[in-house]
Amino acid sequence: HPPSSTVLPPSLPPYFIRGSIIQLADGELKRVEDLKTEDFIQSAEISSELKIDSSTVERIERSHTSPNFAVVQFSVGEHRTQVSVEVLLEYPFFVFGQGWSSCCPDRTTQLLELPCTKLSVGDVCISLTLKNLK
């Protein structure tokens, strides 16, 4: 099967800016830079609709359409479904046990002031699917 393709928002959403206030599923408020893996897992456990999936980075390429974009190919969930997303180089993903990571962490830190590490092949990112998807 060819990879299914998704285009994430072309701009950087405001909630990735350091200091942004994030509400967890239990109502607790945290700054985006303080979020931990457990926060996402526990929030998903409370959620009636969403569940956490593991998305392993399989490939990272520069986009053919724009030098500011990268195409990241993930293997998602237990079925290892191939999904590729086209994102800005500085778009942050949350890596299990590690935290925010992007294709170009220097730019992420510069633009968003969000502490960030380099997203690499083999990293396991947090993603969401519907709980009742069958």
């Binding site: 206030i21 969930g77 997303v85 993603s127 699917t129």
Partner: peptide
């Protein structure tokens, strides 16, 4: 002193990409 005004609060799930796998069954 200026008290902080209402600050936008974002739900946790907006930070996570929604990658719904396509089912091939």
């Amino acid at each position: 002193n200026v008290e902080p005004r209402s600050v936008p609060v974002f739900p946790w799930h907006s930070l996570v990409p929604f990658l719904a796998p396509t089912q091939s069954d």
